[in-house]
Design a protein around this nucleic acid. Structure first.
Lengths: 355, 355
DNA sequence: CTCGGCCGTCGAATCGATTCGATAGGTTGA
DNA sequence: TCAACCTATCGAATCGATTCGACGGCCGAG
């Protein structure tokens, strides 16, 4: 057991062939005689040889078969978000059959990016900024120097990155128009975190200027483009409880000043808003209309159907996977922006008559 | 851009030192003169050298800094389970600071294990069977031949694996005792999948003998050990909807033959049972008591508090991470079984009087 | 003034494979 | 029968670092 693992050289020696011939057997070359092949495979079996060492193979072929997924915060938080999970699933769906594995690169408690120390020890063919991405992330600079191509999903924008995104702004605008057409005039936004520092509460101009996430900024702009400036409350995380908390701050006041509609920047936050509304005894959509964003499956919302902008999350993941695969092969794929679709559910209705 | 990346040799040449000296600089050795160090670092900066190639480094050091996480099914299913997410989070919490990355090894549609083709291309220092693990998984055999040490969390049991688990049986037995003490005599089980083949429905002896998951088997045994043989319905997946579906089959019948308590093998399934009960107009715990397992945070269950066996999921993950780290260093850690704790909530009560 | 020791640097072997050009042996056509 | 060709196998260079033993020069001690 503690014996050193046999190498291909040992196998070749045992089979009585040259190292290069044995290698040919494993690389599936046609140019090796059936008898020889069997002899090599036989020797390998006898020695308990488990196949060519991936590291040595990578060294020569300049390819590790590993793509890094930068998820930006602790897994337990990142994966609470169904969008992140679906996205990763789409990526692996494409990469898996190609024999490429996905390496998780979570940030730790404090920083939002992965540690450069870890990054520099891991052989990456490409990296995907999956759920996050500060535009001044030091890890990004490191990847550049290493020559690791990067796909950014809703992430940082730069010329040397391939971008896969969705119509955040248009989708948000469509939701805002829907509310405007229903007569809503007092509309508020519950925003996803503008940056990962645990801040929550009303968003003022100063805070507003600190937005680090592209999708957050775009979704905000989409609403403002239709409704003008609207009050916004930031959630400390993209999670149901945070949505509820933010919504309470917005809704726990007399009807005359209370918003008649809330635009949550994600379905998760919208679920929280619905819970807050229920807790405060507000009827949806009678007293309050609520919209989300993403179109994720929230089974426990039933029978309510959330009005939201449905994005093709899994397809976005597949696109990111395809982009990474292309980059690995040395191609440079085009940026891609996927459409979102307005889904009108049962959580929006005409604005209550002004009193 | 398309220029080949500079190598350490190029940096050394530029700095006018030997390759080995340059290497010393990057390996943080004390035995290099400050002036030399600066000259090398300066040359590296000028050339845009991003640090030593991880692959080459791994080849020599026989260490890749990568641990594989076998999650057994598609990510989108695996990560719907909060237990899986928390477990992985615990693992990365330990491994991350050690500079070790976690590589996801999902199964594909059909097989439950990762493909050997993928496995054999990836440099692994160790592997963790995280949420799954067939005892006859071909991937396991492959890892053995490759000499990759394996940590099994609730997974396959074998002498050459390090096991990290919880008191599945005792926890289940405690739940069963709780129900027995409350006077329940007609108790049914909603079981997690016995194996990953999409089967759902009543579990007969034949099916029962096919159980491939240790935790499922143990939890079943725990209940039987207290209550004797009880009817069980298998869910096709560990998910809320599947729990609901299984529970409907169990509960949609006259009160005289309906179970008065349901033991769900996970909190997710228990949530489904609660939904089924609500849909059928059954009061909990008046008409029906429900228990789960895991102790995960299900915010949308509020204000109900699920009676369940709370396992230290995250600590289990940390333990698995520590075990993997130990194995990488050549140590052989002991198996570990963590305790679970009965949490009595509001979903269990005295059995309804027999009519 | 000289010798032992120490510190910083260098050479060379090594990790385990891939891959291309070369070669030996056998076949085929003229 | 011999040249021309194939084909299966082999040798050797290569990927990019790490690491250990050796070496040269500078210092202090005798």
């Amino acid at each position: 057991m503690s014996r050193p693992r046999p190498t291909l050289a040992a196998v070749a020696a045992r089979a009585g062939v040259a190292l290069s011939t044995a290698s040919l057997v494993y690389s599936g070359s046609e140019r090796v005689a059936p008898g020889t092949r069997e002899r090599v495979l036989g020797a390998a079996a006898e020695l308990g040889y488990g196949g060519p060492d991936p590291v040595a193979r990578s060294l020569r072929s300049r390819r590790s078969g590993i793509v890094g997924a930068v998820v930006g915060e602790r897994l337990m938080y990142a994966f609470r978000d169904p969008v992140a999970v679906l996205l990763l699933d789409g990526i692996t769906e494409v990469l898996g059959p190609l024999g490429v594995g996905l390496l998780l690169l979570p940030g730790d408690r404090e920083r939002s990016g992965p540690s450069v120390a870890q990054l520099s020890r891991v052989p990456l063919d490409a990296a995907v900024y999956a759920t996050c991405g500060l535009e001044d992330d030091p890890a990004l600079e490191h990847l550049r120097r290493r020559g690791v191509p990067v796909v950014a999903v809703e992430g940082p924008v730069a010329d040397d990155l391939v971008l896969v995104g969705i119509e955040d702004r248009a989708g948000s605008a469509a939701l805002a128009e829907h509310l405007r057409d229903l007569g809503h005039r007092r509309v508020a936004v519950v925003a996803m975190p503008l940056r990962l520092d645990g801040t929550r509460g009303p968003v003022d101009a100063a805070r507003r200027s600190l937005v680090h996430y592209r999708d957050v900024r775009e979704r905000l702009l989409g609403v403002e483009q239709v409704l003008g400036s609207v009050p916004a409350v930031e959630a400390a995380a993209n999670a149901v409880e945070e949505g509820e908390r933010a919504a309470r701050a917005l809704l726990d006041r007399p009807a005359a000043t209370r918003p008649t509609a809330v635009v949550a920047q994600s379905d998760l936050l919208a679920a929280g808003v619905l819970r807050a509304a229920a807790a405060l005894g507000l009827a949806v959509p009678g007293d309050l209309s609520v919209v989300g964003f993403d179109g994720v499956d929230l089974p426990w919302l039933a029978p309510a159907v959330l009005t939201t902008a449905v994005q093709p999350t899994q397809e976005k993941g597949r696109a990111a996977g395809r982009a990474a695969a292309a980059l690995i092969e040395g191609r440079r794929p085009d940026d891609l922006v996927l459409p979102v679709e307005l889904r009108v559910g049962t959580t929006t209705g005409p604005a209550p008559a002004a009193r």
